[in-house]
């Protein structure tokens, strides 16, 4: 099993619903967020191109945060999901420094926090909160090992990219372009 997410940059309008849904679902402290929306403008006027991306932890296969964690608090569970065990985390910040996507933050309670792919929902057969609320239906979640999952079907038919592949992390959030 290999959980992954595909996000259609052609359909995303950047409404930020995914951000609010995550904050509500996961009780994210005020002023913090586990996912966020980026607007990327490239080119020279008048030939400008805009890409809107909803970003979060990439649940990397070769995850630098897990590698550099001195206590094993950052670990990988079923489906390749990267999680932080709060009672093992000492808040040293090594994983925050090691993440090329700046996807982690220091929770006010001391431990490090991040996206969990809403594993508590996924285990009940539901989609992650961000995916389930997307008003343009631009996000797809599922198991890459299952060729019939939403995410496998999208990746089979569409062109896609990942963020900073040169960082060698093998990220599992795919952006359909």
């Amino acid at each position: 099993m290999r959980y992954a997410m595909a996000i259609d940059t052609k359909k995303c309008v950047g409404c930020g619903d995914c951000v609010v849904a995550c904050q509500t679902e996961n009780n994210v402290p005020i002023g913090y967020c586990r996912d966020w929306v980026v607007e990327n403008v490239a080119g020279t006027y008048p030939q400008l191109e805009v890409e809107i991306r909803s970003e979060r932890c990439n649940h990397c296969e070769n995850s630098p945060c897990v590698r550099c964690c001195p206590t094993g608090a950052s670990h990988i569970v079923e489906g390749g999901v990267v999680l932080v065990e709060h009672n093992k985390c000492i808040g040293c910040g090594a994983c925050i420094e090691s993440c090329p996507y700046d996807a982690r933050y220091s929770h006010p309670d001391g431990y490090v926090d991040k996206c969990t792919f809403c594993l508590h929902r996924v285990q009940k057969g539901q989609d992650p909160a961000c995916v389930s609320v997307c008003p343009t239906n631009c996000m797809y979640f599922g198991d890459l090992d299952n060729p019939n999952s939403d995410v496998s079907k999208m990746l089979a038919t569409r062109k896609y990219k990942v963020l900073a592949p040169e960082a060698g992390t093998n990220p599992q959030i795919y952006y359909l372009t």
């Binding site: 950047g14 966020w36 929306v37 980026v38 607007e39 925050i96 700046d102 933050y105």
Partner: peptide, 12 residues
């Protein structure tokens, strides 16, 4: 590149 959803995680 702009973070349009206003991510302002302290320390990040």
């Amino acid at each position: 590149e702009l973070i349009v959803s206003g991510r302002m995680n302290p320390g990040i």
